[in-house]
């Protein structure tokens, strides 16, 4: 997703100004000149200024390139799926890992990611399970990262070394 500087500039300016406005709503501790709004206001102003300078550069070369360029992948459904599968997989992990536990969630996600990348489903199911088991073993059982066990919670005492 590529946009022309003539659009990018104002977008950044807007973000910067928005930050400054939001910062004015912060409570001010009494008796002191510099409150929690000082730094957000400074960084917001910085954003706005940098955005302005992009806008000016954009105006100078306004005839170069389209205003908005759709990325190639969005025109090919397989690539688009590959792309969106990544954020979707992360969100799915966040939602599923507590109820299902790490082992099942990781297996499902690895399976989905590999199958989408044209690995044969049977093969990717086996590989996904092996990798999920290995990660679970290494990180939860040996390194004691508190990964959720899901349905295995009751017996997880035997699985943490």
């Amino acid at each position: 997703m590529r946009v022309h500087d003539i659009i990018l500039g104002p977008a950044v300016v807007l973000a910067g100004v928005g930050l400054c406005v939001w910062a004015t709503a912060l409570p001010q501790p009494q008796g002191f000149a510099y409150g929690p709004n000082l730094f957000p206001t400074l960084t917001g102003s910085g954003l706005a200024l940098a955005g302005l300078s992009i806008l000016f550069a954009g105006i100078k070369k306004r005839r170069m390139g389209p205003l908005f360029e759709r990325p190639d992948w969005s025109k090919r459904w397989r690539l688009a799926i590959n792309f969106w599968l990544i954020p979707v997989a992360i969100i799915a992990y966040v939602l599923l890992v507590e109820p299902l536990g790490f082992l099942i969630t990781a297996t499902l996600l690895l399976f989905a990611l590999m199958t989408a990348n044209r690995v044969h489903p049977r093969r990717s199911a086996v590989v996904a399970l092996i990798i999920a088991l290995a990660i679970n073993l290494l990180f939860a059982s040996i390194l004691h990262v508190p990964l959720p066990w899901g349905p295995l919670t009751a017996v997880s005492g035997w699985l943490i070394w």
């Binding site: 990544i86 996600l109 690895l110 990611l113 590999m114 990348n117 590989v127 996904a128 990798i131 990660i135």
Partner: peptide, 9 residues
């Protein structure tokens, strides 16, 4: 296909 999936994990 394998590396990307595992790296994401």
């Amino acid at each position: 296909a394998y590396v990307s999936a595992v790296v994401l994990m």
